[in-house]
Amino acid sequence: MSPTIHDVAKKSGVSPSTVSRVLNGRPGISESTRERVLKAARELGYIPDISAQGLASGHTMTIGYIIHPRHTLAPHSFYGDVLLGADQEARKYGYHVIFSAEGDLKIPNIVLQNRIDGLILAGCDIPHETILHLKLQGLPLVLVDNHINKIDSITIDNVEGAYEAIKHLINLGHRRIAFICEWFGDLSFSERFAGYKKALAEHNIPIDENLLAEGEPRQQQTGYIAAERLLSQTIPTAIFSANDLVAVQAMRVIREHGLRIPENISIVGFDDAEVCKHVEPPLTSVRVYRKEMGALAVRRLLDLIENPEQPSTHIRVHTELVVRSSTASPPHQ
């Protein structure tokens, strides 16, 4: 049996009316009481009845947007751009978006405290347990840059994007193409690795384990670590990096080894972040249409809010290779 508001009240030592006031963001509640109620609700797995709220007050015209706290919503950041696209699209329909970096919580506070009509969960870091729990409670939700069976999602065509990047390097004459990433356990990076392998296989280029390197998961200098591990064991003619952050840090390592870009080593990133245009040389990268992903997520979410009883939809957004000055033919060409 699902926990009730009375269970939360009993566990937190307050009345059901106090629990209701906390969860609805009403004033006049001390911070200690508010935290105690929210903690009890999370531990019990309690979520307010979304459908009952809708019957009582109609649509709230509010959408929640959640990322994991390790990410940032700074201008030009990946999930910042997704949020911008989502907010711009939501406003067209009279909705507004509230955001939170509570993706590490089983039940985020904006679900407990704010009456939202639906939720966008962005990134692969949000625990599956959280996603499935929210889904089972009947809350309309859409995943962005992540996908789980039977849950609506907007994702990047990671395989094809990486495939096109590797094909570009092969067409330039490269055969010793390295793959580096933050860590292979990340869903997006593993899909980009699949694209890397697909391109090599089509051109009869065998996988060389010495050309594969990962950094340390969730470490600030993970790209530097990955590139250092790679170049300490072999020197490729080209490097494909699973994202731009890792690529930019790898460029520093390449220079520290006395090598030049692209004369000695070509390098390609993924995401086409703003930094790609400002490094030297400008970084070739796979463009991801982040704002469009946010807009698509909102449109799909609003459709689910109006018509919740429909099969899940998985939308894969195509990428575009943007060629700049960090790639050229290998030295022997």
Rank of each mutant, 00 (worst) to 15 (best):
M1K: 12
S2K: 15
P3N: 05
V8A: 10
K10W: 01
K10V: 08
S20K: 05
G25L: 05
G28A: 06
I29K: 07
I29D: 07
E31S: 14
A40I: 02
Y46H: 10
P48V: 06
P48G: 02
D49E: 10
I50K: 13
I50D: 00
S51H: 14
G54R: 15
T60M: 10
T62W: 07
I63M: 10
P69V: 04
R70D: 10
F78K: 02
G80D: 10
D81I: 02
D87T: 13
A90F: 01
Y93M: 01
Y95W: 06
H96E: 05
V97Y: 08
F99T: 13
G103N: 05
D104K: 14
L105Q: 15
P108F: 06
P108D: 06
N109R: 15
V111D: 07
V111C: 09
Q113E: 13
N114D: 11
G118M: 02
G118D: 04
G118S: 04
L119M: 11
L119P: 08
G123C: 06
I126A: 11
H128Y: 09
E129I: 03
T130K: 00
I131H: 07
H133G: 12
G138C: 11
G138N: 11
G138E: 04
L139P: 00
L139S: 01
V142L: 06
V144K: 09
N146I: 00
N146L: 00
H147R: 15
D157K: 09
A162H: 07
Y163I: 00
E164M: 12
A165W: 12
L172M: 08
L172H: 08
R176T: 06
F179G: 04
I180D: 01
I180L: 03
F184A: 10
F184M: 13
G185E: 12
R192Y: 04
A194N: 13
G195M: 06
K198T: 07
A199Y: 04
L200V: 10
L200D: 05
A201I: 03
E202Y: 00
N204Q: 13
I205S: 06
I205D: 07
I205K: 07
P206L: 05
L212M: 13
P217G: 00
R218M: 11
Q220H: 14
Q221S: 12
T222D: 05
I225E: 01
I225C: 00
A227L: 01
E228R: 15
Q233M: 08
I235H: 03
T237H: 08
A238P: 02
I239E: 01
Q249K: 05
A250H: 03
A250S: 14
V253P: 03
I254Y: 09
L259N: 12
R260A: 11
I261F: 10
S266T: 02
S266E: 07
I267Y: 02
V268R: 08
A273Y: 00
K277V: 01
V279Q: 09
V279C: 02
V279T: 09
E280F: 12
P281E: 11
T284R: 04
V286N: 04
V288A: 03
V288P: 03
Y289T: 04
G294I: 06
R300K: 15
D303Q: 15
I305Y: 09
N307V: 08
Q310L: 05
T313G: 00
T313K: 12
